[in-house]
Design a binder for these strands. Structure first.
Length: 433
RNA sequence: GCGACGAUGGUGUAGCGGCAGCAUAGAGGCCUGUGGAGCCUUUGGUCUGGGUUCAACUCCCAGUCGUUGCCCCA
């Protein structure tokens, strides 16, 4: 029965709401974000990383090339034409790898790129995790050296310090997949390796009893030995000393050597070695790292590592690569908590008080010419003088210009220094702030 | 995708099965050429839909959104 007449089902109201998991940047938020992202980028640029951008859209084929269907579920699929599907990028590593291999032959190595841009993942929004979000990151193609890994870590650490964090505010947990897998080799059957890594990855978030339970459930026997690995964490040199005492297989020795080289090159006090850092199961091949706030209160601030197989997997020549991404959501939460998020919207330098509507034309001429050089606000509400000054005060303007019939007659303006209260009558072109 | 909790002016909050109040922000006035104050006026709200009831912002159900835990985190 079609009996619905003017039923308000709330769709009208909901159509005015923001899309779930997105964020509106009002001036205060926008200036804060851009200031932070600019600062981060500048740090990368000082290490000679070049700023790049890619389309928001990629083909689904590319986006899912390196991962399975679970990834597909988190892609915003936005268009379908014939057999082709497009999706919004969910990270920058894959698009930049595509960009790299398109010009692989001509680009001089190393190729060092950075980005500060937005991406999308269709997942449940949580604190520090939105569906539309911004990341700063670097990718470095070419060298397979510890020096490259160290450079990337160095950028992360410097970037965090540059936006107002100290090395007491965060930790950089480093690890190496070869080392973990080498160590697990004798403890875990080959077909259980992925499952074991997955359990290890989320171990820090659960109790050790849970970890034991999960390992047993997965059919892994040498639970005690696996747990012992998880406890190997702390200052790199301490853990290295521990590991040196054990007999290691070749894979583990290789991973260990890589970590030692990196630790030597980046002697930061915020670096700890933590073998539970695995970084998902995706494209990382060796060195991996994760950066967290000291209390572990928030989600990871940054994460990255070495992905030596990705370029080849996408159809390029085998090229080692290393990179990281640093999300704005979590970073801004931490900065906010520490009171270090820049909060100011730029204030106008000058406010023009229009004393009488009769002189508005003259006032507009003056303001127009001043706006070639300064940020100038003027009354456009037709308010009374007192209200105009209130507005100027609310805007924290350092100088106010008074333009009334007297000034207009002489083609002058009265400039008032709001701090000292001193007023001077002068020609508009003589204004120097 | 699953679970828990929540939703009252723009913002922050109070309240009660029977008139929805306070603060703050906004607009205006006191104030027709000069200060951030003060006083006054005013705009604006119970997320959406359904149910119970004489009566629902309040109780019940569903949805939406939010927070959080799980999954996932490429």
């Amino acid at each position: 029965m079609m009996t619905e007449t003017n039923i308000n089902d709330g769709t009208e109201q909901r159509s005015m709401e923001r899309v779930k998991g997105t964020f509106d940047f009002y001036p205060e938020d926008k200036y804060a974000k851009e200031a932070i992202l600019d600062t981060l980028r500048t740090v990368a640029e000082r290490a000679n990383f070049k700023w790049v951008e890619t389309p928001a859209l990629e083909t689904i084929k590319l986006l899912t090339r390196k991962s399975g269907d679970e990834v597909r579920d988190q892609i915003f699929v936005i268009e379908q034409r014939g057999a082709e599907q497009f999706g919004l990028r969910f990270d920058m590593t894959v698009p930049l790898a595509r960009m790299f291999l398109a010009k692989q032959k001509e680009l001089p190595k190393p190729v060092k790129w950075c980005y500060t841009t937005r991406m999308w993942r269709y997942e449940a929004p949580q604190k520090g995790r939105l569906r539309e979000f911004y990341q700063f990151g670097c990718e470095l193609f070419g060298p397979a050296t510890a020096a490259a890994d160290a450079e990337v870590i160095g950028v992360v650490i410097n970037a965090l310090k540059e936006v107002g964090l100290s090395e007491n505010d965060f930790v950089v947990k480093i690890s190496n997949r070869k080392l973990i897998q080498g160590l697990l080799y004798d403890l875990v059957p080959k077909d259980k390796m992925d499952e074991a890594l997955r359990i290890i990855d989320r171990a820090p978030k659960t109790t050790s009893d849970d970890v034991v339970q999960q390992l047993e459930k997965a059919g892994i026997r040498k639970v005690k030995e696996v747990l012992r690995l998880l406890e190997m964490k702390g200052k790199p040199q301490t853990v290295f000393a521990d590991l040196d005492k054990s007999t290691l297989n070749e894979l583990a020795r290789e991973g260990l050597a890589e970590l030692k080289a990196i630790a030597t090159l980046v002697p930061s006090p915020s670096i700890v070695l933590d073998l539970s850092v695995v970084r998902g199961l995706a494209y990382y091949t060796g060195f991996v790292f994760e950066c967290l706030d000291k209390q572990g209160k928030y989600r990871a601030l940054a994460g990255g590592g070495r992905y030596d197989d990705l370029v080849q997997l996408l159809g390029g020549e085998a090229t080692p690569a290393v990179g990281f991404a640093l999300g704005y959501s979590t970073l801004s939460l931490l900065l906010e908590e520490l009171g270090r998020l820049p909060k100011q919207v730029p204030a106008p330098q000058l406010f023009c008080v229009v004393i009488d509507e009769a002189v508005r034309t003259y006032a507009c001429t003056v303001v127009e010419s001043l706006r070639k050089k300064y940020t100038v606000e003027m009354d456009i509400m037709g308010r009374k003088v007192g209200k105009q000054i209130e507005q100027a005060n609310a805007l924290k303007v350092p100088y106010v210009l008074f333009i009334g019939p007297d000034e207009a007659k002489q083609q002058k303006v009265k400039l008032r220094d709001m701090k000292t209260g001193k007023e001077t009558l002068l020609s508009p072109e003589d204004i120097r702030l």
